[in-house]
Design a binder for these strands. Structure first.
Lengths: 202, 202
DNA sequence: CAGAGAATAGAACGATCGTGCTTTTCTGTC
DNA sequence: GACAGAAAAGCACGATCGTTCTATTCTCTG
């Protein structure tokens, strides 16, 4: 549990900020709007961060921590190799489907927003996504080393494909609100993993 | 060629607007900012559209027309069936790689922005993406009917996978600026199409 | 080349933006 | 339970937002 009152309200603010950012955007999310949604005054809220950019950075960090809790950590409980690769993708899709953030994956939404806006916020978002991709790639490598996935195709390429499916169904759901896309995504991931099983050299 | 002066400047404005929208966003793109980038006065530019929403709608339509010219039309020259499926995906990736819009695919960028903002702008964007997906799906169907692609998997699912690869490399490039992702995307598309060839039942 | 109408510019509006400064209210410690 | 410091609110600022109204400049036709 959190010590001081300040830390507690800060956490509440960041919860609201991360949720609102996926719906209305992180950049256009104004201090006034966030204060209203948090039931605080503009200046009271502002004092917690000192600047809008600091608020954005804190929001990204908060969302990253949530992503770890919702996707990375649970997948770490699956055994190394193919099961963990599957678990990572499956939890990623679950996280989009359960709408942990009301506007879908936080990093999918904000990365498009900050793509072309150089600065620390963009860097922080890119860093987080890079670490997700490299973690997925690492899991694929382990599966290849265990002989569960064909090693003729690079782990990076495989991670790209699997992530594309997860991103694809998140994006498609946000646009068309048809929940079938999540199973479509899971099927695509499963089929692709299955097709990468090495020939049974008994 | 365009008749009146008004139509010509309007076109120039929309070119600038579509380009800026992929970099700075369509929603936060202000009239003043766009006027400055177009070398016009705020009110002079504004008079062409009457409201910001009309400007946004016109920008979406303009970008849609460009997408047709850059992606759909050239692919229509490929013969029906598998070659056209490939051409659609390849031109889509090309269009991202050539940076027809400086911030990558216009519809990838704006769809995330307007995902959760109900209104005519969101609807227009969703409509355009839906028509792209259905065109791609239709091309897959034709390839299936010609016996060039296995018909055991739905055309909708196949179109989803192929589009995900194209979207995936656009997004990854915008974030990391590593041009290798485009070939990665093309390889993923090609591999997937290849894997869908029906068993040679001679 | 004149005159009508389109195209653009200028100035101003109320609202909201991010941010500073000052004041009030609340929290946790002795 | 008083008191110091943290937390929150109030208020004001210059800037920019979308939009309106009016005035000026340009374009094309007769």
């Amino acid at each position: 549990m959190l010590k001081t009152k300040g830390e507690r309200t800060r956490e509440t603010i960041l919860d609201t900020a991360a949720a609102l950012a996926t719906q209305e955007g992180l950049a256009p999310l104004s201090i006034g709007r966030l204060a209203e949604a948090s039931g605080m005054s503009k200046s009271g809220l502002f004092a917690h961060f000192g600047s809008k950019e600091e608020l954005q950075l804190a929001t990204v960090d908060h969302a990253a921590a949530m992503f770890v809790v919702e996707v990375i950590s649970p997948a770490r409980e699956a055994p190394r190799g193919l099961p963990r690769v599957w678990a990572l993708c499956d939890h990623m899709i679950d996280y989009a489907e359960r709408q942990v953030f009301p506007g879908g994956c936080f990093f999918a939404a904000t990365s498009f927003e900050f793509n072309n806006r150089p600065g620390p916020v963009r860097d922080r978002i890119a860093e987080m996504i890079a670490s997700w991709l490299s973690y997925l790639e690492h899991a694929v490598e382990q599966a290849q080393e265990a002989g569960e996935i064909d090693a003729s195709l690079g782990a990076r390429e495989i991670a790209f494909e699997l992530d594309s499916f997860a991103q694809g169904c998140n994006a498609k759901f946000q646009l068309f609100r048809d929940a079938r896309v999540f199973d479509e995504g899971r099927r695509a991931v499963r089929d692709r993993i299955e097709s990468l099983r090495p020939p049974l050299a008994a």
